[in-house]
Design a protein around this nucleic acid. Sequence first.
DNA 1: CAAATAGTGTCTCTAAGACAATATCAC
DNA 2: GTGATATTGTCTTAGAGACACTATTTG
Lengths: 276, 276
Amino acid sequence: MESEKEFLSGYKLSDYERPSVTTDVAAFMIRPQENDNYRRNPENKLSLLLIKRGRHPYKDMWALPGGFLQPDETIEDCALREISEETNVTPASIMPVGVFSEPGRDPRGWIISHAYASVISEDSVEQVGMDDASDAQWFDVDFDRTESGEHQLTLTCKDITLTALLTEESTRFGRTSFVIKDSGSLAFDHARIIATALSALRSAAKDYDTILDFLPEEFTLTAFQKVQETIMNVTFLPANFRRMVSSYVSETGGYKRGSGHRPAKLYRRSDRKTNS
Amino acid sequence: MESEKEFLSGYKLSDYERPSVTTDVAAFMIRPQENDNYRRNPENKLSLLLIKRGRHPYKDMWALPGGFLQPDETIEDCALREISEETNVTPASIMPVGVFSEPGRDPRGWIISHAYASVISEDSVEQVGMDDASDAQWFDVDFDRTESGEHQLTLTCKDITLTALLTEESTRFGRTSFVIKDSGSLAFDHARIIATALSALRSAAKDYDTILDFLPEEFTLTAFQKVQETIMNVTFLPANFRRMVSSYVSETGGYKRGSGHRPAKLYRRSDRKTNS
DNA sequence: CAAATAGTGTCTCTAAGACAATATCAC
DNA sequence: GTGATATTGTCTTAGAGACACTATTTG
C-alpha cells in the first residue's frame, strides 16, 4: 500500500486551472470636519480611501486599494499589507466583507477578490500625511436609499464627485449585497464591493466589540461614541451610550486635556465577557 | 495613447503564481433522536456531514466535503454544488465562515479554502436516504469548553468517535477562530474549520432571519424554535419564543397534523423589515 | 379520557431611552 | 466668568422572561 509520503512526492497540483487571487480593501476613516469654533468638537464624516488607477484596465478611474495574494502570506495578511502600503498605518483589525468571484468580473481574466473593510483611527493617518496630488485620496462617503428604493453611493474629494447607483440583491446573515446599475467612474465591480462593505460595517457596528476593534489602545468615551455614530449614521444621548458601554471599558486613569472644555477620562477595553 | 482594448489584447495574467482555490462545507442537520414514546416529540441533535477520504493525503480519515473552484462558477455556487453532490439537497442558504489560507495548511501545495456552513432541513435529507456503508456519514456534534478553557469537539457516528482539542485564537466581529491542539483523526485543518463554523453558526443563530434562511418554505413555530435551540444549545419558553418571532412569520392557513396531539399551524416567513 | 403538544394571557422586572442637573476645564 | 463638553442621576416605558392556564388532537 502506498504511503502518504510516497503519494505526495509524486503529486502534481496542475490538473486544475487556477484563478488569480486578490484582496480589495475598503479602508474607512472617521474624519473630523473643519471647524469655525475653537471650542466646539468637530463634526465627523466617514471617508474612504481610493486610488486612481495609473494603467489599463479602467485607467484614470478610481479603485479600492488591493493586490495579489502571495504564497507566503494569509489572505488577511495580504489585506493588511495593502492598507499599510497605501497609508503607512496597520490597523488593529480588519473585517471580512465577502468574496467576489463572478466569472467575468475582471476583464484581465479569472480573478477572484476577497474584500475587507477597516476603520483607521484619524490620528495615525494625520501623522502620516498625504500628498494632495497623490493618486491615493480620502473621499467623503454618502450612502443612502433613494425614494425609488435604489441606493446611491456618493464619494466626494474636493472637486471630484463619484456617484454610483445600486439595487439590493439579497440580505443574508446581516449583510446586504448589491447589484450595480451605474458604476459611476469606479473601476471593476468596486461600487458593489464598497456598497457591500458599508452595509456590512453598519450592521457590525451595532456590536460594541466591533467598534473597539477599530479604536486605538486608549480613547475617550466621546470618541468611542462618535465612531459608532458616524458609521451607523445615527446619534445617541451621551448618558445612555455611556451606560451601555460601561461594561466594555475601564478607566486608564489618564485624561485628554486641552480642548477648551472639561477634560475627558481615557478608557481602555476591559476584559471581554466570555460568550458562554 | 494606448486604448483599453489594445492593452487587454496584449495582457498576460501569468506574472503571478496562483493558488488552487477550494470550498469546504460544514453541512449541519437538525436530527431527531430515536424515541420510545409515540406521542412525545423527539429530542434533536445537531449533526454534521463528513466524508471518509479514499485517497492520500489523510487517507481513511474524515474530512468536510469540498472541492475545487471552477472557472464558470462563483465560490458560493461551488459550495452549493458540493453539498448538492453529497446530499442531493441544495440548501436555500449558505453562510460564509472564513477563508483559510495559512501557508502549508495543505500538504499538496498552495491551496486556500473557503469555508461555508449550512443547515439542511431534516425532511429533505430523509427523502434522499443515505447508505450506512457510504463514505459520507452524519456525525452527532458536541462542542464545549472544558474546565481548562480549551474547547473539545466530539463527533459521533454509531461506533466511530472523533475527538479534537482546540484553543481560542481570537474573537472578532462575532466570530471566534481556533487553533488546533489535537486534530483527532480529522483531515487537514478541518477541526479548525468545523470549530470556527460552529462558533459562527451559534453567533448567527441569535438572529431570527438567519434561522429562517435555513428553514423550509412552510414550518411550524415549534420546528423554528427547535432549530434555534439545537444550534445554540439553549432552551426558551414557547410563549416567549412565539412572541419574539411573531413579526417575522405569518400563517399559511395550513396545519401539521397526525402527531398524537394538537395540530400545529404552519407558518411562512413574512416580508422582511427594511433595516433603516 | 389521557397524554402530549399547541397556543394565549398577564405579571414582573430589567434595561433602553429621555431629560434634567452638575462638574470641570481653556480662554 | 463664559462657553463648551464631560459626567451623573432619575423618571418613564417597552420588552424579555416566567408562569399559569386553555385548546385540540390521537390512540
